[in-house]
Design a protein around this nucleic acid. Structure first.
Lengths: 343, 343
DNA sequence: TTGGTTGGGTTAAACGTTTAAGTTAATGTT
DNA sequence: AACATTAACTTAAACGTTTAACCCAACCAA
């Protein structure tokens, strides 16, 4: 009923004890006789004091229980990507269990300056579109962890992308195949295109380049050289980019009969386009994906892909951050053979 | 290089001016001569002071630029629901434009006490699983807005669910049809089931009941009475719940030939199940959805549904909250006729 | 000259806590 | 009985800002 909210000081006065005692009643039970503590808590309940002000605690304690999840791209894009949103799922579950709060932070922002002072730590998911941001995070002194990319001296969560790509490619490619690759963020271009001789950008998304290496190694073992002409760049794992790339691949001549896709979304879009054109998968066209999203399971024929658990990544990242782990973790992946390749 | 971070006080001392002046240089340019301001900013840059500490600002100013988005359910569930994640998209885009930060808050939490002190406001999306939370939010004094449900005296964003349901039902139902409804959160049960005579819970999700009213009204106008036996309850708009309900509906006898679904996810699952069983849609079975998600567009036959823009809802909610709007808004919906009903 | 404004500052009191250090009385030890 | 220890509090100094209130010199009007 009071006009202004009760403060700890008010309460102390009303109960005739020091502010320290009230504070301790809430934060450090061991500093107080059990009886007094219960009495104080009961009185607080009665007069409507719900505990120390969190804003003041943040300043004084220097901790807020807020963890910033820095996404690779805008929040809007990330939240609709099945892989990213599954990752968020893992993070949020773990944070909630530990009483932490989740602040979503866009990876295309200029700076972390506006949150770094009150946030308890950073989880960086995927190389931020604005890579300067990642370096800023690495440079500041709060705990941080990266996922799906790496920065020197910052703990991280990754899978072995090179070997994963190698394995799925090895399973798919047969001798004398024409192999194409639908890649993600390989060069610095906002549109879908073949990479030809554009310089590869390694800084922005090393996982794509690891995967590329794996694909190329597998092909090479079968004596197949993948020309840059057969490598597409997509700026995002987005259906419309994928549709365009799919069209280009399927229209090109000679038409590739094995297409290695760096995400399931891309692979599924290619699969649909191919089926719509009456192309026989896998006999005329073999397709592999990457990620192992739910939708890949629902597709017919089942997509051959590399399963990685985004939930596990999210959980691992949150746990490692909160536990102050320093090491770089490599999580397992799982090759899933579907009917989009020949068995 | 200093061991400890620079404070505004340190800077003031070093530059030989008062703390107020430094503060004003950053926050209130008009309180300062232009020359001095630029000099101060330059000096700060030089000595590595990046501006006032945000945690201190939160306490002192009583504002943090953080907006809490309170989701109906756990963050994990919400983030994977296409409708909810699209809503988040709208919210985040608008918040980012205005320099605000997004804190995701789980609707199954016990209390908002742990954030209410530092958050600038609340956007409540869908009646929280723990409804007490919504009341707590309504009771406190920070700005708040609800979306897809209502609380007295709290501004809100909604569509006219009753009429939307009425229209889609009216379009779908023909004389002498047997009509079934696959509803969402109609009764208090954690499993998929027919509602029979279970008491409807109105408190937790009034939009479902509005929709139910609309369906029933449309049916009644054609002289059809929908028995509770033909109304299913699903605890969540989740594929596995939907699959089970779909099975039950399709197995029941007599088999309904019009099924009104309260979400597209449910409708799509029913559609797939029906097609897999060789049932002719729409001749043997008419289906309607609700929401207008992307996937509904990709389905064949195209789903008949009610389109509502979740992005627009998110944007409207964020804008209204930040602008301090008090009124309750009704957003438009859009009937989309696909081939899952007879034309 | 006098008195009123104004621009450009400064001072100092908040904002609402936490916590190291200090005080007291009661308990335990030899 | 003398002393050390402990339990249970209190005191007061932070934490790093913002901002109302005050001050002063310079300018202006009459």
């Amino acid at each position: 009923m009071n006009k202004t909210k009760l403060t700890l000081k008010d309460v102390a006065q009303q109960l005739g004890v020091s502010t320290a005692t009230i504070s301790n009643a809430f934060n450090r039970p061991d500093q107080l006789s059990k009886g007094k503590r219960e009495e104080i808590l009961a009185q607080c309940e009665r007069i409507g004091y719900s505990g120390p002000n969190k804003a003041a605690q943040i300043l004084r304690k220097g901790t807020s229980n807020i963890v910033a999840l820095v996404l690779a791209d805008s929040i809007a894009y990330m939240v609709s990507d099945p892989v990213a949103s599954t990752f968020i799922k893992g993070v949020s579950t773990t944070l909630q269990q530990q009483g932490k709060h989740l602040l979503l932070y866009a990876g295309d922002s200029n700076s972390i300056l506006d949150v770094v002072d009150f946030v308890d730590g950073f989880i960086c998911y995927g190389a931020p579109r604005n890579y300067k941001l990642a370096q800023e995070i690495a440079a500041q002194s709060k705990p941080a962890i990266t996922v799906d990319f790496d920065i020197d001296d910052v703990p991280s969560i990754n899978i072995d992308n090179e070997n994963a790509a190698y394995e799925v490619a090895k399973a798919a490619i047969d001798e004398n195949d024409i192999v194409a690759i639908l890649g993600l963020r390989l060069i610095d271009s906002p549109t879908t295109c073949r990479i030809y001789d554009s310089p590869l950008i390694d800084v922005n998304s090393s996982i794509s380049h690891r995967r590329l290496d794996g694909y190329v190694r597998a092909a090479k073992e079968l004596g197949i050289e993948i020309n840059n002409e057969w490598i597409w760049h997509l700026p995002e794992s987005d259906r419309s980019y994928a549709r365009q790339a799919a069209k280009e691949v399927l229209m090109s001549s000679p038409r590739p009969n094995t297409v290695l896709c760096m995400s399931d979304i891309i692979a599924l879009e290619l699969l649909h386009s191919a089926l719509a054109m009456g192309i026989d998968v896998p006999n005329e066209l073999k397709i592999t994906g990457f990620d192992g999203i739910e939708e890949a399971d629902r597709a017919r024929p089942h997509l051959t892909t590399v399963c990685q658990s985004s939930v596990a990544k999210g959980e691992a990242a949150a746990k490692a951050l909160l536990a102050g782990e320093e090491r770089k973790q490599i999580l397992p992946f799982d090759l899933k053979l579907g009917e989009t390749i020949l068995s």
